[in-house]
Design a protein around this nucleic acid. Structure first.
Length: 380
DNA sequence: CAAGCGTGGGG
DNA sequence: TCCCCAAGCTT
């Protein structure tokens, strides 16, 4: 009681400064060889009572669900949050319920179905993977991490996650959630990405032999709902007593990260060509931004405003005076909007005339969906 | 191996 | 508003 009173009597800033000082003094200490052995049982007990109910997930302790659904969800969840994935997962499993149907899918239809989910290389890799599974594995996913790792779109994380979740193999599953949870549990001062080998070694020490799939999903649920990047809810955390980061008083400090470079700002022009009740769409090259996606024609994306450079054909283009802003991972883009009405005889160098009434089904990435919305208002 | 690659939500 | 970040993979 006396201790607690003195704690609260201490000015808050001094309290945290003291704790931070303790954290700093750990800096020179070697990376801990292991974490408390109580972590896995505590976490699994918490998961049994608190697991999220997700369409691709078996309940805690239950046998695994269809590997196809596990695989599909893992691909969609790469760098993408659960709430965003849910409607896409429902759409895809209804349209393509297994590897055979996906391997036979029309690529254009699949890319359009993926539109809006981002990181479009995932969709192309997904088809390639489904075809590999059909051609080389008799239509069934291999069950080992090493075999899974060879398939398109499956890296270290996804191979481990599928092996553990779909096949019950013990595998060390490390994603951004696990990195955050582990660096906090250990109060690890070494910054990402150089700390990745240490994080994996620490995760290995707490991964149980049994229920590896539940354990991996429990770590991710914990990271997504309690051990969040900002404002972690330590009071609700089943691992609070095992957590060195919580003991420092500043768990948000972890994981330490190298500073990122500022995102440059680029300019472009989007061309809105209307021919009767059709608009001109093109297909972007497979490599590069928005690769393989249907799109409105654009000129170059560069530091200076490109004006009407690289218009899809000669016409009386008019700048709408409006522009569309869009943020990508490593730059922001501001596009001017140029419109033209033309007669039925003009032949663009490439592309297709798409019915305006059916534009929603074209599967345009968000940048172009925004531009189309603006230009349709401008037309009126 | 560092850089390229989307998007939407939250602080 | 702006910045950070998320169930990463590929080259």
């Amino acid at each position: 009681m006396a201790v607690a009173f003195r704690l609260f009597a201490l000015p808050v800033s001094r309290f945290y400064r003291g704790l931070r000082h303790r954290a700093q003094s750990c800096h020179r200490r070697a990376v801990p060889a292991k974490l408390p052995s109580t972590i896995a049982p505590h976490l699994l007990a918490w998961y049994d009572a608190n697991a999220r109910d997700l369409p691709w997930r078996a309940p805690p302790g239950a046998p695994p669900t269809d590997p196809y659904r596990v695989w599909l969800s893992e691909i969609m969840l790469q760098q993408t949050q659960v709430a965003t994935v849910k409607p896409y997962f429902a759409k895809f499993t209804a349209r393509w319920p297994d590897f055979a149907s996906l391997a036979a899918a029309d690529e254009g239809e699949l890319m359009a179905a993926w539109a809006g989910l981002g990181y479009y290389a995932r969709a192309r890799n997904m088809i390639a993977c489904a075809r590999q599974v059909s051609a080389e594995h008799d239509g069934a996913l291999p069950a080992t991490e090493a075999e899974l790792r060879k398939l398109s779109g499956i890296g270290d994380y996804t191979a481990a996650a599928i092996a553990a979740i779909a096949f019950g193999e013990r595998a060390v599953v490390v994603d951004a959630n696990v990195e955050r949870v582990v660096t906090r549990l250990a109060a690890l001062e070494k910054p990402l990405p150089s700390a990745k080998p240490d994080i994996r070694a620490l995760a290995d020490t707490i991964t149980p032999d049994a229920r590896a799939g539940d354990f991996a999903q429990a770590m991710m649920d914990l990271g997504a709902t309690i051990c969040t990047a900002g404002a972690p809810k330590c009071l609700l955390c089943p691992l609070r007593a095992d957590c060195a980061g919580h003991a420092t008083g500043d768990p948000e400090r972890y994981p330490r990260k190298q500073p990122k470079r500022a995102r440059p700002h680029r300019h472009g022009t989007i061309f809105w060509a209307v021919n009767g009740d059709h608009v001109l769409l093109v297909r972007r090259p497979d490599k590069g931004m928005l690769g393989g996606m249907r799109a409105l024609p654009t000129g170059p994306w560069q530091d200076e405003k490109p004006g009407l450079a690289e218009a899809p054909f000669d016409a009386e283009w008019r700048m709408s005076g409006d522009s569309v802003q869009h943020g990508f991972t490593h730059f922001t883009l501001e596009c001017a909007l140029a419109g033209a009405r033309i007669d039925g005889h003009t032949n663009p160098r490439s592309g297709e005339w798409w019915p305006l009434a059916d534009l929603d089904s074209a599967g345009l990435p968000t940048l172009f969906a925004k531009a189309a919305k603006r230009m349709r208002e401008w037309e009126c």
